[in-house]
Amino acid sequence: MRQNPSYAMTDLAEIRRLVDRNPWATLVSATDEGLVASHYAVLLDDDRDDLTVVGHVGKPDDLIHGLGERELLIVFQGPHGYITPRWYGEGKAVPTWNFVTAHLSGVPEILSTEENLVVLDRLVARFENTAEDPRLLWERPNDADFVERLEKGTTGFRLTPTRLVAKRKLSQNRPDEVIETIIHGLDGDGPYRNPGLAAEMRRAQDARTAAKGDRG
């Protein structure tokens, strides 16, 4: 992803928030047969406060990606959507697409069986714990034999990125009044309704407004 200094996302806490809120990631590797991509849930490593992530792939995706032997690119995609030029006013304009995304690259470390079980357990808990009656990994009707057989069909990994490109393109190049119009349009009932993107733009706009106030 080509970086644009105007849209660069450099705040570690904001990138961690993006990763945490958008765990369904794309994994990309360059192999002797060409590019290969897979899609898996990837989480921040609970034991670290940087951008280290953990996850797993089903076998034989570990061999297809050369997991642990070559660089892996993990793409996290946040809110995104179409921006109509009618929100810019009466002047000449073309549409664009607003988005938030982060690319983490590095050679992943392969997890031990015990570490992988911890990650699998945490992955299930992350999404089940929102329910009143969660079905956690080690709870009945599952038993230890079932869970351990399940783990053998996966390969867990931990990746601490050695390269990072994070980008937040949210109409920062437009005047405040235009940004407010875009947010209102995305948060309304029209054909381009996108409340998730509207909320992300509001968060970024409020941060910029606060920064301007601090400088003033």
Rank of each mutant, 00 (worst) to 15 (best):
E200D: 13
E69T: 14
V75N: 01
A204G: 06
A198F: 06
P85C: 07
E33Q: 14
R215Q: 13
A204N: 07
S112K: 02
A131P: 00
G81Y: 10
R193N: 11
Q172E: 09
G58W: 05
P191Y: 00
D11W: 02
M1P: 11
L63W: 12
V28T: 07
A13P: 02
A13T: 05
G190R: 09
H39R: 07
V36M: 03
E180G: 08
T10C: 15
E115N: 02
M201F: 09
A211V: 10
N142A: 15
L12F: 04
G196T: 14
G58R: 10
G185T: 09
K169D: 04
H103K: 00
P85R: 02
T155Q: 14
I64V: 13
E132T: 13
T113L: 10
V147D: 10
R203E: 10
V124I: 15
L120I: 08
N194K: 13
Q3W: 06
T84Y: 11
E200C: 11
A25R: 05
K152S: 12
L67S: 10
G216F: 11
I83L: 12
P141L: 08
R126M: 08
V147L: 12
S171Q: 08
T10L: 15
R16N: 03
T96I: 03
G78P: 01
R17D: 14
P95V: 01
D189H: 06
A207Q: 04
L197N: 13
E115S: 10
N98R: 03
A93Q: 04
P191Q: 05
V28P: 00
I64Q: 02
H80A: 14
I110T: 10
E109F: 03
P191T: 12
V107N: 07
V75K: 01
A199M: 09
H56C: 05
Y88H: 07
V28I: 14
L159F: 09
G185Y: 08
Y7H: 15
F127I: 00
R135Q: 13
R122S: 15
P175I: 02
L159E: 09
P95G: 01
K169P: 11
Q77T: 11
V42K: 03
L44C: 05
K152I: 00
N142I: 13
N98W: 00
T160W: 07
F146H: 15
I183K: 05
N4H: 15
I74W: 06
G89N: 03
L27Y: 07
V54A: 10
D20V: 00
T26S: 06
D143A: 12
E180C: 03
L51F: 05
L159P: 09
Y192P: 01
A210F: 05
A207I: 01
L111I: 06
Y7G: 09
A207E: 03
F99C: 00
R21N: 12
